[in-house]
């Protein structure tokens, strides 16, 4: 039987939160290193999930809905508190090295050594993914060319590239390591409309590479346009799961199921984060 790309059972995660330094309590002095203890943040309520191979699955929700925690658990960057998750049959905790051979991740902030050139960053990525740089230059120029980036982009320090260009190089980097599961954590957030459209085209083009893609976004229109299946999340729970056609307008559905606008939910999450 073919293993699914992702299978999770009862997967949950909560994070400890410390408050800021305590305010002076009247005239009583309190040590500055003492921190107010706040209730834990439940990032993920017990979650069951099965993703078949191929296609683009969207995980949609406002900030703090549990999207990034789910991606980080699958990327072996966060350990779950309970439950189990497997990538192509390999447990993300017990067989993390095997899992990492199958995955790559593009995050909201393109993670590069900014003073190094795109080429130096790409060679570094190729090496730590266990390959050498033989033939890499040609493949890099080919991939960047397909993404509309001029060939000389590769020799410029990453800090000289625009955010859109950096994100394209990040996607090129992830493709060059030939992942079977690509985890994309808000790859278009903060991009200008043109770069956003181009990155979306790149994501759409991944279908041809037979890559299973998990795309986290809080852009409902992006999810409706790109995804074959959508998980709508809020406060660590899956509110709805289906194809975009089955779910209809995601914006309206989110409001129906959560009782709030996604923009309001984002603002609440930002205030919550600022208070931590």
């Amino acid at each position: 039987m073919t293993q699914p790309a992702v299978e999770a059972r009862g997967l949950s995660k909560r994070f400890r939160r410390s408050g800021g330094s305590p305010e002076r309590d009247g005239r009583r002095w309190r040590a500055p290193w003492r921190r107010e203890r706040r209730p834990d943040l439940i990032a993920l309520h017990p979650l069951d999930l099965r993703l078949e191979r191929g296609g683009i699955t969207g995980v949609i929700g406002p900030n703090g809905s549990g999207k990034s925690t789910l991606v980080r658990i699958l990327a072996t960057l966060v350990l779950p508190d309970a439950g189990r998750a497997a990538v192509f049959g390999h447990d993300v905790v017990g067989e993390s090295l095997r899992v990492r051979r199958h995955i790559n991740r593009v995050s909201v902030e393109a993670a590069f050594f900014k003073e190094l050139s795109a080429w130096e960053n790409l060679v570094y990525a190729a090496r730590i993914y266990g390959t050498d740089d033989r033939g890499l230059r040609g493949r890099v120029e080919d991939v960047l060319g397909r993404f509309g980036l001029p060939a000389d982009t590769v020799d410029r320090p990453v800090r000289h590239l625009s955010r859109g260009q950096q994100q394209k190089v990040a996607i090129a980097r992830s493709v060059l390591t030939t992942p079977s599961l690509l985890l994309m954590d808000e790859p278009t957030t903060g991009l200008d409309p043109r770069s956003k459209r181009e990155v979306q085209q790149m994501v759409d083009g991944l279908r041809r590479e037979s890559v299973t893609t998990l795309l986290c976004t809080h852009d409902m229109e992006e999810a409706e346009a790109l995804c074959d299946r959508v998980l709508l999340m809020d406060r660590g729970r899956v509110l709805a799961d289906g194809t975009p056609a089955q779910l209809g307008r995601l914006q309206n559905l989110f409001f129906e199921l959560s009782g709030r606008d996604i923009e309001d939910a984002d603002s609440e999450a930002e205030l919550e984060e600022a208070a931590c």
Binding site: L77, L97, R100, I103, A111, F112, F113, I128, Y129
Partner: peptide
């Protein structure tokens, strides 16, 4: 500082 720690720790390297 560079923001690459997650990328390095996610790579399939011992």
């Amino acid at each position: 500082w560079e923001g690459t720690i997650e990328y390095t720790f996610m790579a399939p390297v011992r």
